[in-house]
């Protein structure tokens, strides 16, 4: 039986800083996971990934990451992706600096 498709976001690292970015529904790269486009259709996900891969002068290594719906927008499903939304746990560096 084929695996059931679970919702995804497209994420990558920004070319210049390497900072984690997410693709929005209106084709912008955002630094905030909750603003990402949550994709729940597999075919659409593949098309969006192809779109992202063509933008190689903006980002590096786009891929599909599991996500789930929350009232505040998409949230990461796996702990690796949770760390990517925040930064390292040993210093207040990275994205967590700007978070409330």
């Amino acid at each position: 039986m084929p695996r059931i498709f679970t919702p995804k976001v497209i994420t990558a690292n920004a070319l210049m800083e390497g900072d984690v970015v997410y693709l929005t529904a209106d084709d912008l790269w955002t630094r905030h996971h909750r603003e990402a486009e949550l994709i729940d259709d597999e075919a659409h996900a593949q098309v969006r990934l192809l779109d992202a891969e063509r933008r190689c002068d903006e980002v590096v290594g786009p891929y599909l990451a599991d996500a789930r719906t929350t009232p505040d927008g998409p949230a990461p499903a796996h702990f690796r992706e949770v760390l990517r939304t925040r930064g390292p746990s040993n210093y207040r560096h990275g994205k967590q600096v700007g978070l409330v």
């Binding site: 690292n13 800083e17 390497g18 590096v60 990517r84 560096h93 990275g94």
Partner: peptide
């Protein structure tokens, strides 16, 4: 020696 890691180069 330049890698791309989780949050940065």
């Amino acid at each position: 020696g330049l890698y791309l890691q989780l949050h940065a180069y």
